[in-house]
Design a protein around this nucleic acid. Sequence first.
RNA 1: GCGACUGUAGCUCAGUUGGUUAGAGCGCUGGUUUGUGGUACCGGAGGCCGUGGGUUCGAAACCCAUCAGUCGCCCCA
Length: 414
Amino acid sequence: MSNKKISTVRGMHDIYGTSFFKQRDIIESFIKVASLFNFTPMNTPIMEHSEVFLRTLGDSSDVVMKEMYSFFDKSDDSITLRPEGTAGIARALISNGFTQNLPQKYFYYGPMFRYERPQQGRLRQFNQVGLEFFGKGSYLEDCEVIRAAHHFLIDLGIQKDVVLKINTIGKLDSRKNFIKEIKNYFNKNKKKLSSDSLKRLDRNPLRILDSKAPEDKELLETAPIIYNFLKQEEIESFENVKSTLESIGISFTLDPYLVRGLDYYSDTTFEYTLKKNDKFAVLAGGRYDNLIKELGGEKIPGVGWAAGIERIENLILKNPSIKLPIVLIPTNEKYMNYVLNISNKLYFKNIKNQILDHFNLKKSLKYANKINVKIALIIGDEEFKKTKISYKNLESGSQFTLTEKELFEKIKNE
RNA sequence: GCGACUGUAGCUCAGUUGGUUAGAGCGCUGGUUUGUGGUACCGGAGGCCGUGGGUUCGAAACCCAUCAGUCGCCCCA
């Protein structure tokens, strides 16, 4: 055993200080908005049987192929740390028999795990907030979750930094036909395809659509387009989504190349990406009509989204204030009871306070100044003798000696 | 998973073509001031130079490996 300093697991970070408070604010804002839309909270376990994700995310998806945090537990069961939240919620719906009673609206938040190469905005343990709407598959549900996303982003004050992109990838049958066609198309133009997309051609040809390689983008200009493969009701539903969003003033751009990385999606897909970097999704989701069925339930359609807390955090520039209004400074341990008593009274008035136990006025004031305290209450020999308290405003430097009653009067007026 | 760059004190970084006991600023700490903070001045602590190997008389510096971070790709929230 060496004396090497211990560190976190790669891609996993300690969250503390302003970052913690920012994350808490984001979650609080999310809870507020989701609750106003009558989504109810649900916590599913951080681990699931690997099957839950294998059956839903798709064998060819990168998440399953290389990013799952999977291991065998002591009973030799294959367990996976959840890479995303939707599959777990869907599983819970089935496990608890909630599918009998629709619609069901849930929100969740918590850590997710993906075994990826860490970089900016991409961690191995990261936090998401998300919500899911299980119902009858109406376009109104799509609009409802997008509306919730819209208000969430406004509440966070980052709506100006993002744009909403939407698309439809149709239902399974239509999509199959479309995939067949683009496969043909790209096969004919194999030579012009980028090497990355060549690999995607067999595995997941849909992904070629959102390729960033210039040679692919050129090919895409004359490629078949999904909308020509959709059935009438699929088109109608998507048109309804668009017109409803327009009518309530949620602007979006249509992106026919927006496809999602997870197999369970169908029909409407959407993404809020950064204005300054449109590859970077802050909040993303879509409809998934086969997910519950894949997990052995009935065919219940759902729609939802998830947002990365750390990615949102990076957009919020304002640091939450963590100021401490009051410190109590006894100059001698003998006065602790007196000071504890006052601290308790402050507590009952919901005033954050801390007792400094240097028993050294100078050190205490120095420390109080360092942590940016507004008021210092000093209890020393003179104060104790007269059962008074010295009230010192550290910003102005002014100081008064007050009775306890006067003190609480003064604090109330501040 | 692929490619590039980086790793020296708690933090931000210097460290000349390899050469004695590795530096600065900020921070921390003690004092000038034994009941008054912020300012000033004077002291102090704190580093196996990410880790492991190699080259060399000699390595923070050069080579290899490994770990971690950053950036790009893949992918994604």
